[in-house]
Amino acid sequence: MSGLLTPFRQAVRRDLLLAARHKTEVITALFFFVIVVNLLPLGIGPDADLLRKIAPGALWIGALLATLLGLQRLFAPDHQDGTLEQMALSPQSFTLLIAGKIMAHWLVSGLPVVLIAPLLGVQFDLPARSLGILTLSLLLGTPILSLIGAVGAALTLGVRGSGVLLSLLILPLYIPALIFGAGAVEADLAGLGFEGHLSLLGALLLACTVFAPWVSTVALRVALE
């Protein structure tokens, strides 16, 4: 079992080492998330009731945008210096290597967002219970963002204006995750129970884990041709 996952582990290790060499990029994405979420009250007004109501949506959209920021650099540097080519020619499973890269992307861009989200939730005066649900929904949801995003990054690799194009392709596909994720908190507040939302989010995560790395590899092979 461990032998099967070796390429996955190696790819994660490599990308984490690279991320550790430019920490600023990681911190910038996190800071971007914090600032976007903090701008909303400034644009909407300090009405506490209203802010509490929009908090889940605001944090989720912030997470979406922060993920998008890092996605453009998921494959592009490896493509430019030929590493991606070497990965595609590896005797190990290309799909597992790519899955490792996606995992590393989540660890670097998704996990910090999940960890800092409760703090931002407090700024929006969310009650403790909602904070917990929101964090849980982000924990289940941010990997989905990385996984679906990888497909978009692979499709737009090396293409003119790939950054903007990536957002155009990916954002509509993020809608279910956004609805179930932000909806979990709202459903709980409305007394409808949040479990349904979170289990749907979990199902989505499972489906994405199975299919997204594979679809990304197919798209990357097309991009490498």
């Binding site: 070796t6 390429p7 190696q10 790819a11 290790r13 490599r14 080492l17 590493t83 070497q86 990965m87 590896s90 005797p91 190990q92 290597l97």
Partner: peptide, 8 residues
């Protein structure tokens, strides 16, 4: 070492 690792 990293690329060797990724190639198994």
């Amino acid at each position: 070492t990293l690329s060797l690792g990724m190639e198994g």
